[in-house]
Amino acid sequence: MKTLTITALLAMSTATAALAQDMTLRFQSSDPAGNPNFQLQKQWAESVSEKTDGAIEVEMLPVESIVAHNETQDAIAAGILDGHVTDTSYFAGKDAAFGLIANPVGAYGDPQEMLDFMYEGGGAELMNELLNPYGLQFIGATTPGLEAFVSKVPLEGVHDLQGLKLRAPEGLVQQVFAAAGAAPVNLPGSEVFTSLDKGVIDAADYTVFSTNQAQGMHDVAPHPVYPGFHSLPLVEISMNKQKWDSLTEEQQTALSESVEEFSQLQVSTLKEADEKALEEARASGDITVHDWPEEERAKFRQIARGEWEKVAQGSENAQKVYDTLTAYLIEQGLM
């Protein structure tokens, strides 16, 4: 389906406004239909129906079905969509706080650390402070996982990043690696394998271990760092606040619980895939997996903190995210 603009769909939202009581909710994902994460999201949608005895049905749509991936927030506020499952960083242009809470590079060494921050460290409250003014309600968080790191050379800690030529996307990821002494370059994902193979780069921020293994990255970069130490994106599940407020307390609780259960399913599914790929990689005898000790992860986190501080200057909300996150990490002994 051709993606329509927000403006073109505003009239449609007026026509459907009368269906406020209708518990069939349209959510758009930031993942394509064939992506394994989207298949898990469809399972979440089915679980909502089960938990509410059919009172709430969620129609899960793949990316670009109704609007562009970075327009879902506006579409939800306008009533064109009812909700989304999406990477929060897509809205960093509206407020630097969205970018910082979406992926504070280096903050987490495990998906559960991010989920604990969201549910126990004030992250969920921050998300609603950010989203409510835009007409959205944060239901809960999930993540596609902590990215591993592919490298042609052994990396035992922060000191080995000095002068390392690596691929990293523009923005906070590049900033943090540069602050750690590396030499990041911006390359599209399609060029990572060839660039590693030809020696244009020595390492790359790419994706999770199982995907790296499946795509042959370890054939040309046999020194992966796993578990990873840098990037763990927040995927938010949010919906139109007016529709959320129209739900009963029991329905709201059911939705919140469904998202918490879904996040655990996604994290455990990915961990299983990573561990299977890890076993295969080690069995080959050609790959050396490097697991950074906690003190090296803490060093990298401290370097990253300096870059978070710069982002925090972008808005009052971003400063609040920074203050809340760093307080939590210090409290947990992670910084």
Rank of each mutant, 00 (worst) to 15 (best):
V192C: 11
Q41P: 03
G181K: 07
T3Q: 05
P224I: 01
A183W: 00
V63C: 04
Y90P: 08
E120H: 15
I101D: 04
K42E: 15
T52D: 12
I6P: 04
S30I: 10
A312E: 04
V200L: 12
L126M: 09
A204F: 10
E156M: 12
R297W: 04
D219S: 13
G122S: 09
H230R: 07
S190I: 15
H84N: 04
V235E: 02
H218T: 12
S256V: 13
E125H: 11
A304F: 06
E71A: 15
V185A: 09
V158N: 05
I76P: 01
K165R: 14
F38H: 12
K241V: 10
L172Q: 15
E309I: 07
F229G: 00
V63S: 07
K165I: 09
E280P: 02
A92L: 06
A168M: 13
E280V: 11
S47R: 11
F300R: 06
F98K: 01
Q73S: 14
L334A: 07
G189N: 13
D160S: 08
G123P: 08
I237G: 02
A102P: 02
L100G: 02
Q41K: 06
S49F: 10
L187G: 10
F117V: 00
A254L: 05
V311P: 01
A179K: 05
Q137P: 12
V85P: 00
E113L: 08
M60Y: 02
V225I: 15
R297T: 00
L100N: 01
P233W: 07
D197H: 13
P62W: 06
Q175G: 10
V63P: 02
D110A: 10
G93I: 03
V225A: 09
L126Y: 08
K165S: 12
L19P: 03
Q28G: 06
L329F: 12
D31A: 07
V85G: 04
G189I: 15
D110T: 08
V105H: 06
L172T: 10
A11P: 00
I237F: 14
A45V: 11
E129V: 04
F91V: 06
D245S: 13
D116P: 11
S268I: 01
F262H: 12
Q174C: 09
W44S: 05
A203W: 10
Q39K: 14
V311H: 03
G181S: 08
K276W: 04
G34T: 10
W308Y: 15
N317M: 11
I76D: 01
L9V: 00
N132C: 04
A203G: 08
G228Q: 00
P104E: 14
Y226K: 03
E260G: 07
R301T: 01
P144A: 15
Q264Y: 03
E249L: 12
K51P: 01
F209M: 03
I76V: 15
L265C: 02
A92T: 12
E275C: 00
V158W: 02
M12T: 00
K276N: 11
F262L: 07
E257G: 10
K299R: 14
Y134S: 13
G123D: 10
L25W: 09
